[in-house]
Simulated scan of single mutants.
Amino acid sequence: MKKTHDFHWQWLDDDSFAAWIFLTPAAILLGLFVIWPITYLFYLSFTAGSFTSTGTHWVGLKNYWRLLVNADFWQVLFNTIYFTLGSIIPSLVIPLGLAVLLNRSLAFRGVLRSAYFLPSIISLVAAGLGFRWLFQTTGPVNGLLSFLTIPPIPWLGDTFWAMPVLILFSIWKQIGFNMVVFLAGLQAISPSRYEAAELDGANSWQQFRHITIPGLKPTLIFATVTTAIFTLRSFEPVYIITGGGPLNATNLLVYYTYQEAFSQFDFGYAAAVASVLLVVTLLLVYLQLRTWGEE
């Protein structure tokens, strides 16, 4: 008995117990604002009804079956995949190239860095209104095309061109943030590695491939994951610029969830859509970490 008692007090005096004491407030907040909402979301996806006096009732997998047979959902899912893939790759390649250039001794490097980062701090709503004005039928973009004797394009009214406008907006918003992240990663690579490579006769491309890319691996993982999450949660651009149109061509899972929940008041079905979005996000992040992460 005495040994058990002594072991108990020994555990209380252990550093891990103090760590748990300090982690408890954060764990409580995490449970209240992350774990519980996700758990309730999954529960809600198996129900139907509303938050009125009638309440909700259990319907099992009915909402998920509706997803499988709903053509609009599959179109929205395809739109989301198209938008995500079209945004992620340029949002990584372009900032990486800019970071490599700015990392060198260029004139006005600080001014250029601030200019590229500026879109990241502009309000999504204000930026969306600006893009809608630029690409409207009588906007400056079509004015430039007319000056070049090119017929105007109905950017926001055409099912083919509307999505590239949203992708361009997403890339424009993400470039500055990723560039600063890559620039910080580049400055963490020791210059002696490049000097040794030059002595061995390595050209610029070989240095970039064998020194820069491996040295930026943790940064690339971070930038890829954050960019993927940013694109998958895009709501404001769709709401402000296209409204999901034309003909549902730019409707994304986040905006589709909003429509079903707060326009149709079909909260169970909206929760099922949000659950699918959560699974897609987790799967995409897992694949990225699996591809870029350590063995």
Rank of each mutant, 00 (worst) to 15 (best):
K2W: 06
K2S: 13
F7Y: 15
W20E: 11
W20H: 12
A27N: 06
L29P: 04
G31P: 03
L41T: 13
L41D: 12
Y43F: 11
F46R: 10
A48P: 13
T56I: 09
W58D: 01
N63M: 05
L67S: 01
V69S: 11
A71L: 08
A71G: 06
W74C: 00
V76T: 06
I81R: 01
T84N: 06
I94E: 04
I94G: 04
P95H: 07
A99C: 05
V100S: 15
L101R: 06
S105W: 12
F108E: 06
F108K: 07
G110E: 15
Y116N: 09
V125W: 08
F131I: 10
L134T: 07
L134I: 12
L134Y: 03
F135I: 03
V141I: 15
P151E: 14
I153C: 00
T159Y: 00
P164Y: 01
I167G: 02
I171T: 09
W172I: 10
K173R: 14
Q174G: 05
I175S: 06
I175D: 03
G176C: 08
V180C: 10
A184S: 09
G185P: 11
Y194R: 04
D200I: 09
A202Y: 10
S204N: 11
Q206S: 14
Q206C: 11
F208H: 03
H210S: 15
I211S: 00
K217E: 07
L220S: 09
I221E: 11
I221V: 13
A223L: 02
T227A: 10
L232Y: 04
Y239F: 14
I240S: 07
G243F: 01
G244C: 02
L253W: 06
V254H: 03
Y258F: 11
Q264W: 12
Q264M: 15
A272H: 04
L283G: 14
L283T: 13
Y286V: 09
L287K: 02
Q288D: 00
Q288L: 14
E294M: 08
